[in-house]
Amino acid sequence: LELERYFHKEIARVQAQWYGQQSGKGVKHPVTSKHIRKLYKRKQDSVTDYLHKITRYLAEYCREQGITCVVTGDIRNIRREKDLGHRTNQKFHNLPYNRIYIMLEYKLKRYGIRFVKQEESYTSQCSPLSPEVGKRYAEPSNRKERGLYRDGNRVYNADAVGAYNILRKYHSVSGVKKELSVTGLKTPEIIKVAV
């Protein structure tokens, strides 16, 4: 995210400077400079490098922990027909979901680990203690603020609740009967991957 911000600001600064110079010279339709193209390439390469680091870390972690199946929320259509405001829309469109899925899937496959994408409607709105994940038990008002899910007097990490419910939803769809523990949903472990 920091890389993204740095390149965004730097590209905007260089573009403004370049187009200002071209406009001063009377050029109506200036061509992008080599410097700007180089910055875009560096940004793209940095993002790709970071995605490889993240997906490699996850694949290695799963192999070390003996995990045989990874279930992830399928969010490729999250942006469709939604207007979340100019800034949020821009952030959503910059996230390369499909590239993450492809990279993670082939890296997991090398270790014989199955990769499953699960449709995730209502997973972030249902309590981890609700009988099932669905519209009937969804309570959007429980998402009090970014990163916080409140269920009565219990407080959970919102992202952990979403992930937990994606797994519950996968189990119900696939017919797997498995008891899951809510331990760790309050304070999940945060892992930092080097840039």
Score class of each variant (00 low, 15 high):
Y50S: 09
E179A: 14
V47H: 02
R99C: 04
A194M: 10
T55E: 09
P30A: 05
E64Y: 03
Y97R: 09
H8S: 05
A158T: 05
P96N: 06
Y19K: 02
T183R: 12
K177E: 15
V47I: 15
Q15T: 01
Q15G: 01
V182A: 07
G85K: 08
Q22D: 00
N89Q: 15
N165W: 13
Q118P: 11
Q65M: 13
G85L: 11
R136N: 06
Q17P: 02
E189F: 04
S172I: 01
L3M: 11
Q125G: 05
E145A: 09
L185H: 04
V70N: 02
K91L: 12
K144P: 02
I100Q: 03
R110M: 05
V155G: 04
D49G: 09
W18Q: 03
E189W: 01
H52E: 12
K43Y: 12
Y156A: 02
I166A: 06
H52L: 10
C126S: 07
H86Y: 10
T68V: 11
L167A: 13
I100D: 02
K186W: 03
V116M: 06
D74E: 04
S172W: 11
E139T: 12
G162V: 05
N165Y: 13
I166M: 09
Y97T: 00
R136S: 07
T48E: 13
H86W: 11
K178L: 14
G152W: 11
S181Y: 07
A59C: 08
S141M: 08
V70G: 04
S46R: 01
E119I: 13
I100K: 00
Q21H: 07
A138K: 04
T48Y: 11
K107E: 13
S33D: 02
K82E: 05
F115Q: 09
Q125A: 10
R56D: 06
T183A: 15
E105T: 03
Y111W: 15
S121W: 08
R143N: 07
S33T: 01
F92E: 03
Q125V: 02
F115M: 10
F7P: 00
K34P: 05
L185N: 04
R110G: 00
H93W: 15
V14H: 05
K178C: 08
N153T: 11
